[in-house]
């Protein structure tokens, strides 16, 4: 017997927090899939470190969402007992790991955004979010450093690595626009100084990204057509498979404590 998914009272602040928590969990989960399979032991260590940073962010954000919601939910109920339509992460982050180039491009696109985002959120009028932002900013700053160094090495390494990195950029580019999309439901939080307007992060993000991509002798696609939907629970098919694995235990053994 499967467990029904939980109900979440998605007030603007709960929804806002869950969206960022889902980002961190889904990307952290993807990175954890590398554990034991990375191209060299040194990178296995690095990918696990980044995965653990993100899992930590997710847990703090879920805990805060639960507190704000004030119901019976907690980090595990949010993570394990919501269905694919209730997940609110960016589409970019649920994309499969693919090869190391794809994982690094995904990491770089997101980290370059997350670093700017958390830095801006350190000024949030919500003290909990501001505190989470202060911790997360340092983590994402390192993720930017790590992934940009690899962008440059893959782009300017061998013909094969260049080809793989360029193909990852081409395939993932359409998922980057969603990071900067302003959801009208979040307008109130922005006006209240709790959230920030992500559209304002686009120019500095593009500057960082173009700089690294140029140094890597790679190119950004011309197309500006962007995919959207993750924030509203309209996902790619990949997320369902990820969740079926992630949630298998609590779904198989309803109500058990682990």
């Amino acid at each position: 017997m499967a467990v029904a998914s939980i109900l979440v009272s998605e007030t603007p602040l709960v929804l806002y927090t869950l969206r960022r928590a889902d980002d961190a969990l889904i990307l952290g989960h993807r990175l954890s899939e590398w554990c034991g399979h990375a191209p060299m032991m040194e990178e296995d260590m690095a990918l696990a470190n980044m995965g653990l940073d993100l899992l930590g962010q997710a847990r703090e954000l879920y805990a805060y969402a639960a507190k704000v919601e004030g119901k019976d939910n907690d980090e595990d109920k949010f993570a394990y007992l919501r269905d694919v339509r209730q997940y609110r992460n960016l589409l970019l982050l649920e994309q499969p790991n693919g090869d190391f180039a794809r994982t690094m491009v995904r990491q770089f696109f997101y980290a370059a955004f997350a670093d700017l985002y958390w830095r801006a959120m350190m000024q949030s009028g919500d003290p909990t979010l501001a505190a989470i932002a202060a911790k997360s900013e340092k983590e994402s700053a390192y993720h930017v450093r790590h992934s940009s160094e690899w962008m440059v090495r893959l782009g300017d390494g061998t013909e094969e690595s260049h080809r793989r990195a360029q193909s990852a950029i081409d395939d993932l580019w359409a998922y980057t626009g969603e990071m900067f999309h302003l959801d009208e439901g979040e307008r109130g939080l922005i006006d209240a100084g709790i959230a920030i307007d992500p559209a304002k992060l686009h120019a500095p993000w593009l500057k960082t990204v173009s700089g690294v991509v140029n140094e890597a002798t790679l190119a950004l696609p011309k197309s500006n057509w962007m995919q959207q939907g993750g924030r509203d629970g309209r996902h790619s098919e990949h997320l369902g498979h990820l969740l079926s694995e992630l949630q298998s235990m609590p779904r198989t053994f309803p109500g058990a404590t682990w």
């Binding site: 899939e33 399979h37 847990r59 694995e245 235990m249 609590p250």
Partner: peptide, 24 residues
């Protein structure tokens, strides 16, 4: 490592990932 993606709670997941990473 075969259980990291299926760990039954987020606390267990973080601990297991850290442990398998230690082994590396």
């Amino acid at each position: 490592g075969n259980w990291i993606t299926r760990a039954p709670s987020l606390r267990r997941k973080a601990a297991l990932l850290a442990k398998v990473q230690d082994e590396c």
